[in-house]
Design a protein around this nucleic acid. Structure first.
Length: 719
RNA sequence: GGGCGGUUAGCUCAGUUGGUAGAGCGCAUCAUUGACGUUGAUGAGGUCGGAGGUUCGACCCCUCUAUCGCCCACCA
């Protein structure tokens, strides 16, 4: 027996050594010609460090990858990082302002981007190190970045194809403008926050209207009511009314529209089409005038007269004062709660604005070439929405757990065109050039002079949408594409089902006529011991690096797997991780016991087995099947729990205790049988445990006297 | 307002095609120079949110209801 077993297991000493052994052995690269199994790593944002959610993701994916590799499949797990346009840029802007009191405009586009790149580089190195610490058996030779050259080519190619097909268009529409970020964001990037705000009732000629935002009301010259509202029967659509308003007399026009809720307030409202999506739709339907009241910095425009140049935050109370003086305020509800729209990255308050932007048309019909999508034949007319729906509806893509497909369909049903242009600097520049009235869209800049490129960048999810195939070399026709696409499974958090999963299905469906993956495994959020979000302010953040250092990566991984069924949030405490550290110790001591009682001559060939040992080999086969079935069924949580219990409470607590008696008092035949069986159960258990606890199992494996593979990582999975 | 989940032992949660409930932690009692004290054995503790229904039989299926959480939404 190796002397190392005389000391307790030391993960710190072992883990980096073992990881090096695997990496240098080239075991992370796909091997063989068999069936393929592929996972593309959801690329972590280069905004800092990994958290426990990432650790859980890595653990689940590594389990699937190691299991399939041991089963002999040609297994690829491909790493990468995400430039995370808005998230990264706002992070750098924050740091820049804190440290140097400068904005990005003080630095200029070029210098600012240098700073971002530098930060992204450092962040990348930290992240790669963390991924390795978790034991991820991922193929670093294929590492990618969403903003690198090949991915840029993919992005530009995709944009051009969609533009040429009429699926990308430029439109003057109402968008979600974030004055803080100085960019617009898509509907999905809006996070609504409840906020107490007074609600004002104002006299508008013969009507009473309500508003939480009096500062937008200057230009309101349309008064809208439901066509069926009997209270306002005497007013006709198009009727003009002269009335006194904030800055003097105006002429208002009556509009009848079904968008008005008769039950809300007085059933009458005025509209501000430039700064409200609903109002914009009403104005569009009736072809009404629109006028901007607030500029892109959040300051009032000259239409507001004496308030011009004042920021809306300051202006509101001043405007209410003026309204009061003029006797236009009828009442104020101080207990009103409104759902404030904010940017989910950076938290800026959204001010809807009409702006010219790029959109992906999700409803437009087009002919799908080379379709491998169930229910859509080659050359059939379809739409992006239909592709997103059919792939999941037909079961071609299976979402695990199942109930998320309802959420997914629900989202598709209300989906509007996807706004893909951003006014930020960090990201893929839109591949569109303008010269006078001419527009050029292409992968490369036009050759002749006088063209200027669109200053905007693309939504980060546009490039993420291509991720399963841009990482494999698309638009080139590579071997990796042939071998590994569609990928076997996408494993990610349920919080990015819309942002990412849906966009990948859209992009892959359109560009390849195929699905990007066969299964979507959604994991839950990692919460604190009380089931709440971990946060800096409550000081309960559990850091993956701290935990691997304190308890070992194997313990950290197990704590994130057991009790975490797909889709369920998991509450994590340090106690739980400590519990699995104890399990590591148990495994170590089982190995010590077995190896101190068994030597090479006992295991050369299979002896005649005692009745007891036959029974235990049968038990071993049962647990093997249970573990395999649960991993195959995408229940790694069950698989881990089952093997954990079996090893500890059956193998160790029962079998080893019985064997001790045999080794003391048994016949020679029974002793031989017991030694062989002990060793067989140990080696099989190391294999079964390997996907979950790769480091300690490999470390023990390295000291085994007889084995069917030099390294456990590529040993064959037991049948 | 719409959708989706949860509600099971003191705590955290399992319970994958219906056969009167399980784990971990905690608690109690006991063991001890044993491969491992990062241990082992034993035990206490639950009318499975509530009310109906289907069934020979329901934690599980159906209906209603309470409550918590999440997501979505143009109540100005």
């Amino acid at each position: 027996m190796d002397d190392k077993f005389l000391k307790p297991y030391n993960p710190q000493e072992t883990e980096s050594k073992i990881y090096k052994l695997w990496e240098e052995g080239g075991f992370f690269k796909p091997k063989g010609a068999g069936e393929a199994f592929s996972i593309i790593l959801p690329p972590p944002n280069v905004t800092g460090t990994l958290h426990m959610g990432h650790a859980a993701m890595l653990a689940i994916e590594d389990i699937l990858v190691r299991y399939n590799r041991m089963k002999g499949k040609k297994t690829l797990w491909l790493p990468g990082t995400d430039h995370a346009a808005i998230a990264t840029q706002s992070k750098i802007e924050e740091i820049l302002y804190k440290k140097e009191k400068k904005t990005r405009h003080d630095l200029g586009r070029e210098e600012f981007l240098k700073r971002v790149e530098q930060f992204a580089k450092e962040s990348h190195d930290t992240i790669v190190n963390q991924i390795k610490k978790m034991g991820a058996s991922i193929d670093w030779s294929r590492e990618t970045y969403t903003l690198d050259e090949k991915r840029s080519l993919a992005v530009k190619t995709a944009f051009k194809r969609m533009y040429d097909n009429g699926l990308i268009y430029r439109g003057n529409r109402i968008v979600n403008w974030d004055p803080k970020m100085q960019s617009n964001v898509s509907d999905d990037e809006i996070e609504r926050k409840e906020e107490k705000s007074p609600f004002y009732y104002l006299k508008y000629g013969p009507f009473e209207i309500g508003t939480a935002r009096p500062e937008t009301k200057f230009g309101d010259k349309y008064v809208v009511m439901h066509p069926d509202d009997k209270r306002y029967k005497k007013y006709e659509h198009g009727q003009k009314l002269d009335l006194e308003w904030i800055n003097g007399p105006i002429t208002a026009t009556v509009i009848k529209d079904e968008a008005v809720d008769m039950k809300f307030g007085t059933g009458v409202m005025t509209i501000t089409p430039w700064h409200d999506a609903t109002d914009f739709e009403i104005a569009k339907r009736h072809n009404l005038d629109t006028e901007q009241i607030i500029d892109f910095n959040g300051k009032l425009l000259p239409i507001t007269k004496e308030f011009a140049g004042i920021h809306i935050k300051k202006a509101r109370s001043m405007i209410v004062e003026k309204l009061k003086e003029k006797g236009l305020v009828t009442k104020i509800n101080e207990n009103y709660t409104l759902n404030l729209a904010t940017n989910y990255r950076g938290g800026g308050v959204i001010e809807p604005q009409i702006k010219e932007q790029w959109f992906v048309d999700v409803n437009k019909k087009f002919k799908l070439k080379n379709s491998k999508i169930n229910g859509i034949k080659n050359g059939d007319e379809t739409s992006l929405k239909e592709i997103m729906r059919k792939t999941v509806e037909s079961g071609q893509i299976e979402i695990i757990p199942k109930h998320f497909d309802k959420t997914y369909f629900h989202w598709i049903d209300k989906l509007n065109d996807w706004n893909i242009s951003r006014q930020i600097w960090y990201g893929h520049r839109i591949p569109v050039w303008n010269k006078d009235k001419e527009v050029y869209v292409g992968v490369d800049a036009p050759e002749d002079d006088g063209w200027t490129q669109d200053p905007d960048t693309l939504d980060t999810w546009f490039s993420s949408g291509l991720w399963t195939f841009s990482t494999l070399g698309w638009p080139e026709d590579t071997d990796d594409m042939k071998n590994f696409h569609p990928t076997s499974v996408l494993e990610t958090g349920h919080d990015i089902l819309f942002f990412w999963v849906a966009r990948m299905i859209l992009m892959s469906g359109y560009l390849l006529g195929d699905v990007p993956f066969k299964k979507v495994y959604l994991h839950g959020m990692v919460l604190n011991a009380k089931g709440k979000k971990m946060s800096k302010s409550s000081g309960d953040i559990i850091d993956p690096l701290d935990m691997t250092e304190k308890y070992g990566a194997d313990a950290a991984r197990l704590s994130l797997i057991v009790g975490a069924p797909p889709g369920n949030d998991i509450s994590l405490s340090e106690d739980k991780i400590r519990g699995y550290k104890n399990f590591s110790n148990k495994i170590w001591n089982i190995a010590r016991f077995v190896l101190s009682n068994v030597d090479e001559k006992n295991i050369k060939e299979k002896p005649k087995l005692s009745a007891l040992d036959k029974e235990w080999i049968k038990n071993l086969n049962n647990i093997t099947k249970t573990v395999s079935d649960n991993i195959d069924g995408y229940r790694p949580d069950f698989a881990a729990d089952e093997i954990y219990h079996w090893v500890w409470h059956n193998f160790a607590d029962i079998y080893i205790e019985e064997v001790k008696l045999v080794l003391q008092n048994g016949s020679d035949v029974d002793k031989k049988s017991a030694k062989w069986t002990l060793y067989t159960i140990l080696t099989t258990c190391l294999k079964l445990l390997h996907p979950f606890a790769p480091f300690i199992t490999e470390e023990i494996w390295q000291s085994l006297p007889k084995k069917d593979s030099e390294t456990l990582i590529v040993a064959s999975w037991p049948q």
